[in-house]
Design a protein around this nucleic acid. Structure first.
Lengths: 217, 217
DNA sequence: CCGTAAGGTTACGCGCGAGTAAGTTATCTC
DNA sequence: GAGATAACTTACTCGCGCGTAACCTTACGG
């Protein structure tokens, strides 16, 4: 019952879809190439023909997913906006991605971080994001006439990314939660800070053109 | 050249030490039982005799390390202190632990999180910490006469833990960095918040009895 | 309508490393 | 100092799953 022969480009994507799913469900080692092949509607040697070894296949998944995520974040956060709004939109875009691509996120964050062949690759991408955020913070600070040591900027960006990742995991375990709501919570944590919240100063999402809260979108 | 016969209790700890090191260097799957045995000064069947399967051995490592970490954090953060100081001390204790037990931390955070047999166990411990923090936040808020929805408390705690983990990874890659300095940076991120920092309001570590900054200890 | 290449398959080799059976010495106890 | 037992070793088995060799078959360009 083999459905139909498909052109390489199409099959390659199906294979990546299947691989992302299986890797995220079972983890890299427990994932087995036959299962990935079957889920792609094809037999194992085809996977090897198109994507090389298991390791190379995983790397392809990693690259595709992280590229999509980065695009999403960059598209959402516009450098010309005020800093809080940049942050808000970036975070919201990130959580929306995670909400929509659970297993892609799992491949990136859970699997790739621990396994040595991939950790480096992923660390590189994460670093790029951290540096981007650090740079935008720097710009915002300079507009206020302030200057901060580079390590302090990096720490701030790392905290932000770490907090986001942590909430992203929580979000992916709570499918019914609205990503924008989670984003709002994160803004309260990292933009306002616990000290402010103690005194009742909270952060609220900005209004869009129609006057609706973006969080309710 | 077998050095000496040792009582079980001693050998068991040596094995855990060796295992933590090897697991953290190679990862769970790439780690091999012979290497762990050799590093414990003993041959493989002894490891099986004392710690059961590879999986059980890893679980023992996980439990020992996470217990030590929890103890450390609880000992440092005293619930009778004001909230910012509780947070400060807890974070500082955490980073000091990570600085002193790099590979223990690696086993916990990098390895255990992704591998299915262990992820659940670790998630449980992490959850306990998150709930502890959420509870203390709640107490602090109630002292101010405020009330916050439980999910908002949890989010705040999750952000905090996530940010800490992120900086802990950075710290373990920068051995010369002072843990207390990293803790200060984290306080600025999560207690003050990016919004405050933009306006030049920063957080400084409290003074100890002798008038020294604790960060310089 | 035929040749050829792209899409596809079945069936296997083989290395690695978890786990063990059977046996050997040190050490402690009475 | 005998005998029991805890500490330890050598030398295997064996299954799993990655990766491949060798072989079909459908589509389609000329």
């Amino acid at each position: 019952m083999q459905s139909k022969r498909l052109p390489r480009a199409v099959r390659e994507q199906q294979m990546l879809d299947a691989a992302v799913r299986v890797f995220s469900e079972r983890g890299f080692h427990a994932a087995n190439m036959d299962e990935i092949a079957e889920l792609s509607g094809v037999s194992k040697p085809m996977v090897y023909a198109y994507h090389g070894t298991k390791e190379e296949l995983f790397l392809s998944c990693l690259r595709r997913e992280s590229e999509r995520l980065m695009e999403r974040i960059l598209a959402a956060s516009d450098a010309t906006l005020p800093p809080d709004e940049q942050l808000w939109r970036g975070i919201k875009g990130f959580f929306e991605f995670v909400g929509a691509h659970r297993d892609g996120w799992s491949v990136l964050h859970r699997q790739a971080r621990s396994l040595e062949p991939f950790a480096g690759e992923l660390a590189g991408m994460r670093k790029a994001l951290v540096q981007l955020i650090a740079h935008r913070l720097d710009v915002a600070l300079q507009k206020e006439g302030r200057q901060v040591r580079p390590d302090d900027l990096t720490s701030m960006a790392l905290s932000l990314v770490g907090a986001s990742e942590s909430l992203a995991d929580w979000l992916s375990a709570h499918p019914d939660e609205d990503p924008a709501r989670t984003a709002t919570r994160l803004m309260n944590a990292v933009w306002m800070g616990a000290g402010q919240l103690l005194h009742g100063h909270t952060w609220k999402p900005p209004l869009d053109e129609r006057g609706n809260h973006q969080a309710a979108a």
